[in-house]
Simulated scan of single mutants.
Amino acid sequence: MKEQRFDVWAAGATYERYMGRWSRLAAEEFATWLNCADNLRWLDVGCGTGVLSAVVTARCRPRMVVGIDRSEGFVGSARAAVPLSTHCIVADAMSLPVRDETWDVAVSGLTLNFLPEPTAAVAEMARVVRTGGLVAAYVWDYAEGMGFLRRFWDAAIETDPSAVALDEGRRFAVCRPERLSKVWADAGLVDVSTAPIEVPTVFADFADLWEPFLAGQGPAPGYVASLTPADRDQVRDALSAAVPRRLDGSIALTARAWAVSGRRAVHSGASCAPAAPEEAGGALGDHRLPGDHRPGSLGARGGGGQNAHGRSRILSRCAAGIPGRAAEYRLRRSYGVCGAVVRKSRTRGLTWERNSSK
C-alpha cells in the first residue's frame, strides 16, 4: 500500500472546510512575519486554492503575483477566488516554467512536505529569484502542533495500528524547524531563519470537526474514505472522546505551523535591486499572462512571446481588463517553436488558444 495514494488534493470547496479556513489565518501571519517591501514580484509555488496569493495581493502591495499548482481543480478554484490582478497557472513545482533570476520573492504555503524532493524544490525556487531575493515557506507542525490532526491520528492508530504508517506527523519529518533550516541551507540559501506561527482552530461542534474528514481531500480524509463504515465509526467515536469541549459544545484547539526564510546569496558586484518593470513580460518563460485569470484564461507552456517591451505592453492591457471588441495578439518566442493566440471578449476577458502550426 502506497501512503501517497491518500494525498488527494483536487476539490477547492472541499479543501476550504477541511483546511482552507485555517490556512488563511496562517497565511496572514506568514505575510506579517516576512514584512516585505512594496512593489515586488511574487511567485507562489503550490498555490492551491489561492489562499496565500490572495493574502499577498491584499497585504503586500506587490507589482505582480503569480500562483503555480499542479492540481487543475485547485487552480480553477484559485482563479475564481483571487483578485483580478493575480494570475494562476497549472505547472509543476519541481520544474517551474519561469526564467532564472526574474522574481523578487518565491513563497510556498503548506506544500513543501508533499513534494517528492523538498531540497530540490527549494533550489528550484532559489533559481528563479534575483540575487538577494527571498525564498520562504511555511508547513504545519504535524507531529506536535496541529491540534485536530494530531488528535485524529492518535484516534485512528488507537483503533487501527496500521494507520501509524500514514500519520503525517511521522511521514513529514521536514515539518520541523531544524529540518527546514537544513533544507534551506542545502539549497544554497543564506540568512536562514525560522519562526512558529500559531492560529486558533475553533469548531462550532463535533460535526464541524468530523464532517470534513469524510470528503476525501488530503491524507487523513483519504484514509477515512478507505475504511469500512464500522471502522469509520470507531475512529469517529475515539476522536470524539479525545477532543475537549466548551460548555456550548464548541471545540477550541490550535494549529502551529513553522515558517522558514532565506535569501539567494549576494556575490561581489551583484545588484540587489528588484527586477526592472520592463522585465515583467518575460518572467514566466513560455507561459503568458493574458490578464483574465479565470479558468482557461492563461497562456500555455510553449506559447510564444515578443520582446520584453511588447510583452509588458500586452500584460498592461490585459491586466487592466480593457473592454471592447474582440482583439487578437500573437505571442511568439523570438526564436520560434510555437505561438499562442489570445482573444479578448466582453464577457470572458482574455482566453488563450494554442496554435501549434507556428
Score class of each variant (00 low, 15 high):
V183D: 01
R313G: 06
E101N: 11
G299N: 14
G291D: 09
L43V: 05
T201C: 13
A265S: 14
A270R: 08
S162T: 09
A185H: 00
M19H: 05
A143H: 03
G50D: 07
G67R: 13
V192T: 11
G291H: 09
L180W: 00
H309E: 12
A270Q: 15
S356V: 14
V266R: 10
R5H: 05
L189V: 03
A173H: 08
P196G: 02
L84H: 12
R313S: 13
A121I: 05
S334Y: 03
V139N: 07
G282Q: 04
G269E: 08
V128I: 11
R70G: 05
A187Q: 06
E278M: 04
A123K: 12
R24S: 10
N39R: 12
G73D: 02
F152L: 03
W184H: 06
E117F: 02
N307S: 14
A275E: 03
V235P: 11
D160S: 13
P116F: 01
Q217R: 01
R343H: 11
S162M: 06
R288T: 15
R330C: 08
T14C: 04
Q4N: 03
W184G: 00
D292E: 03
V224C: 11
F74G: 05
F206D: 13
T119L: 08
P229S: 14
P116C: 03
S108H: 14
P177K: 07
A163M: 02
R21C: 11
S85H: 09
P277T: 03
R294N: 14
A27H: 00
A81N: 14
W258Q: 00
G281I: 09
T14L: 07
D92I: 14
A308G: 05
G188I: 08
P83A: 13
G48R: 04
Y15K: 02
D160G: 05
A207G: 12
I314V: 06
P244V: 07
W184T: 04
W184F: 15
C60F: 05
A10E: 12
P196F: 01
Q217A: 01
F114V: 04
E353N: 10
A155N: 08
V55I: 14
R263C: 15
E278P: 00
G169L: 06
I68Q: 09
H267F: 10
W352A: 12
W103C: 12
A230D: 14
S181V: 07
G12S: 02
G188H: 09
A143K: 10
L25G: 06
C36I: 04
V98E: 15
R354K: 08
P295T: 02
S261D: 04
E353P: 01
E16T: 09
L239Y: 06
L214K: 10
V199E: 00
R343Y: 11
Q234F: 04
G216P: 12
N35F: 01
A11T: 10
A327D: 06
A320E: 05
L331W: 09
A187R: 04
F172C: 01
W42G: 06
T111W: 03
G299A: 14
G324C: 01
Q234M: 05
R288C: 15
R246S: 08
I314Q: 10
K2T: 03
T119W: 03
A143Y: 06
D167W: 07
P177V: 05
V45S: 01
S95F: 10
V183M: 01
L84F: 11
G349R: 01
D286I: 13
G282L: 09
D160K: 13
R313P: 00
N35D: 12
T228E: 13
R333K: 13
S268Y: 09
A13L: 09
R130G: 09
G76T: 11
